[in-house]
């Protein structure tokens, strides 16, 4: 059944385009690194952001789309009926989909994020550009946290896709979680702006690495708690999906 879901995912062109869009970050990261390299040549040293962190939202959105389309394309085209006719055990079908989506987004995310990191360091060379101040070991928690955030977003996308059955609604919800809610949180009254802000999806990645959320905002959550909250997003979306998928008419 895993093999069947894997074939479904890789046999449609949208999956290839989405992974291609995520891989574009490697190119963007290289361009960024050349640019900050020339700035560093001119000024001696600068503090530039790491491209795999700056362009992370592009990886997150592209690969969340893989999760969304894994199910909304089935509702959109009507293939959900042949799917459930072939595999009437709905929980097993959804579990297979979730497994395949997790694998098909984690591996590209891992590759894109680590390659972007490596390329940006190669291009920077021994110039002090900011993002190459720490060792690879220092950067590792942030890199792994970034990869995990992509997996989580893809599973959230899958879960929201099952619940809404609509590509637009599910993508809209993912965008809301990633950009809109974190943008609103700072405007809440004290101390809720910080407390709620700490739980916002994009803010969890720096907290996993024990870093500040922003130049003004310290993280509240210890790294292990940030990992748990991040995983919690996927869990909540998937539980909702299982509950709905189990009983709904197809």
């Amino acid at each position: 059944m895993i093999a069947s879901e894997w074939l479904k995912l890789r046999s449609v062109s949208s999956t290839r385009y989405a992974i291609g869009a995520a891989a574009l970050v490697i190119v963007l990261g290289a361009v960024w690194s050349f640019y900050v390299g020339t700035l560093a040549d001119a000024r001696g040293s600068i503090r530039a952001a790491a491209p795999e962190e700056g362009f992370l939202p592009l990886v997150q959105i592209s690969l969340a789309l893989v999760g969304v389309l894994a199910v909304t394309a089935e509702y959109g085209t009507g293939t959900i009926r042949p799917s459930l006719t072939a595999v009437p055990r709905r929980r097993a079908l959804l579990a297979a989909k979730a497994t395949v989506v997790a694998a098909a987004t984690t591996l590209p995310a891992l590759a894109v994020i680590f390659i972007t990191h490596a390329v940006s360091h190669l291009i920077a060379g021994d110039r002090a550009v900011g993002y190459n101040a720490g060792s690879f070991g220092d950067d590792l928690p942030l890199l792994l946290g970034s990869v995990l955030s992509v997996t989580v977003l893809a599973l959230v996308g899958l879960g929201l896709g099952v619940v809404t059955r609509s590509t637009a609604a599910a993508v809209g919800s993912v965008v809301g979680l990633l950009f809109v809610l974190p943008g609103i949180a700072p405007y809440l009254p004290q101390p809720w702006n910080v407390r709620v802000g700490a739980w916002m999806l994009p803010n969890l990645v720096p907290q996993i690495a024990g870093e500040r959320i922003s130049t003004r905002l310290d993280g509240l959550l210890p790294p292990a708690a940030a990992v748990a909250v991040l995983a919690g997003y996927a869990l909540v979306a998937l539980v909702a999906a299982f509950l709905v998928f189990e009983r709904r008419d197809a």
Binding site: L7, V12, S14, G78, R81, P82, S83
Partner: peptide, 22 residues
């Protein structure tokens, strides 16, 4: 049930192959 229930970018072969594998 519905002949139109096909993914437009999936080949006929792959449409049947995912079913066979399942």
């Amino acid at each position: 049930l519905d002949a139109n229930a096909l993914h437009p970018t999936r080949s006929a072969y792959n449409h049947l192959l995912w079913m066979a594998r399942s």
